[in-house]
Design a protein around this nucleic acid. Structure first.
Length: 464
RNA sequence: GGCGCGAUAGCAAAGCGGUUAUGCUCUGGAUUGCAAAUCCAGUCAGUCCGGUUCGACUCCGGAUCGCGCCUCCA
């Protein structure tokens, strides 16, 4: 039985789909004016794991994640670069897809771009004006009339009156009310624009998601996800737009990922303390980064640090160490695992609001049993195949163990040189020249290479 | 000021009203020529103060501290 924590009700709820067996999932994606950072990676990985798991349980998931490809920051950045904004956005969309690929993040079923939904955005804005929820201002902007929507603030528990007294609302002669937010922005000179009933302009940020989700998921859909900083105002505004325009409930379950912190502070573009995915991958194996993100619950805040990455690597080394002799074993089909206690524990953990941490704990139990089973080949292969099946759902453990273990750390010494020294050491051992054998092992250790002698597999090595 | 979240052993991080979380580290043992890896055993918890209860890390109240949102941000 699937349970999901719903931001709207602030509690875990038993999930009930709109249509039996189906889930429509819309996640707010990236505004493409720069490289993705680790905070983006967190959301991307979280919903990737969620969709992988849901599909493994035979849910028919329609996963939609948008791209915001028109926006102030995009226009400004393009100007700075003296670059066409479409050129800028396509560059960063491509970069995002590369980053996703390296982190084993599967592409959503639909990846709508705001600029491809201008007509839908205009249509929705028109309806909002007709219904009295929005108005065209004198300068060609269109604004949402916040006070016209009685439920405004229900997602984040905001009181509309108190929003007025909030300190940081700008005074604006154009708007009827300082709380009103923009649906359509009149174009300034030299800005990209589309024609509309209110003159040339471009969409506001919030209306994009209302329009795209309506087209891709329907008026009411199951799950809406996003990053930790989106509930207010973005998702609050989406609710106001969609429920006012469609006259129906917008979303049944709201899911928000936890923040990534650096030194206890939120990592964000506005604070400038962010690490791009690319930065991190220069130093760490992509699977280590993904494993770090999967290692904690998707809603808890996580601290980004070298220590945590090193720990993530240590955890992965334990898994890959256990899988070392089973490189050719394929993940077991889930249909063959229904009776497995490991599988039951895994599914139970994941059904409980996608508790990857508990799922992982069960996988470590499996590792211990696998290490104990090495003499029973049939059993061991079955356990290894189960472990890989869980890994497949979490998006880890699919690499050749030997390759993973030998890839870490510095590559000051080549694999060939290492192999040669190992051969020399084996000879020394055969000659009972342990002094020379230990000397070789020590010299390799200094270069970050650990040797492991095994009766069965001979001498194996890994980088630390 | 408003809204919300959190405080768990050396570090990271979960569940649970009474029974081992888990990973890394540490200690002892097995194994090894010696190691490493692995296995077995073990040490180390629940910010503070009250309350409920036969019994609370787990529920309730309060305090303290930390964090997020309230402005573009995943």
């Amino acid at each position: 039985m699937l349970q999901i924590y719903n931001t709207l009700t602030r509690q875990k709820e038993i999930f009930k789909p709109i249509h039996e067996g189906k889930i429509s999932l819309y996640v707010c994606g990236i505004t493409v004016y720069d490289y993705c950072h680790i905070g983006h990676a967190r959301v991307l990985v979280a919903f990737d794991v969620i969709t992988r798991f849901l599909r493994s349980q035979n849910w028919d998931v329609n996963y939609v994640r948008n791209i915001t490809d028109i926006d102030d920051k995009i226009i400004n950045r393009a100007k700075e670069n003296s670059e066409e904004y479409t050129h800028l956005t396509s560059r960063f969309i491509q970069a995002m897809h590369e980053d996703e690929k390296s982190l084993e993040i599967k592409r959503p079923d639909i990846e709508p771009r705001a600029t491809a939904y201008i007509q839908e955005i205009i249509d929705m804005s028109k309806i909002l004006i007709e219904k009295g929820h929005a108005y065209a201002a004198s300068n060609g902007d269109v604004y949402y009339r916040v006070t016209s929507f009685a439920d405004y603030g229900k997602l984040t528990n905001k009181n509309v009156d108190e929003l007025l007294s909030g300190a940081r609302i700008e005074v604006d002669e154009i708007k009827e009310d300082p709380r009103d937010f923009v649906l359509w922005k009149a174009a300034k000179v030299d800005e990209p624009s589309w024609s509309s009933p209110w003159g040339n302009g471009r969409p506001g940020w919030h209306i994009e998601c209302s329009a795209m989700s309506k087209k891709c998921c329907g008026d009411t859909f199951d799950i809406h996800g996003g990053g930790p900083d989106l509930p207010f105002p973005h998702h609050e505004n989406e609710i106001a737009q969609s429920e006012a325009a469609n006259g129906r409930k917008y979303v049944n379950y709201w899911m928000h990922a936890g923040a990534v912190r650096v030194d206890g502070e939120k990592m964000s573009k506005s604070l400038g303390n962010f690490f791009t995915i690319r930065d991190v991958l220069e130093k760490y194996h992509p699977e280590v980064v993904r494993f770090l993100l999967v290692s904690s619950h998707y809603r808890s805040p996580i601290n980004y640090s070298e220590d945590n990455l090193i720990e993530a690597r240590a955890g992965l080394e334990r898994f890959y160490g256990a899988l070392r002799d089973y490189a050719d074993v394929a993940p077991l089909a889930l249909s063959n695992m229904q009776e497995s206690n490991y599988y039951k524990a895994f599914v139970e953990a994941m059904n409980d609001d996608f508790n990857t941490r508990v799922a992982l704990a069960g996988m470590y139990d499996l590792v211990r049993d696998l290490n104990n089973a090495k003499s029973d080949t049939v059993l061991a292969k079955n356990l290894a195949a189960q472990l890989k099946a869980f890994g497949l759902i979490l998006g880890v453990l699919q690499e050749n163990p030997e390759v993973f273990l030998q890839a870490g750390g510095s590559d000051a010494i080549s694999a060939e040189e290492i192999e040669n020294l190992i051969a020399e050491r084996i000879q020394a051992k055969n000659d009972k020249n342990f002094a020379r054998a230990d000397e070789i092992r020590k010299s390799l250790l200094v270069q970050g290479v650990v040797l492991e002698d095994s009766k069965v597999a001979g001498t194996q090595w890994r980088r630390e």
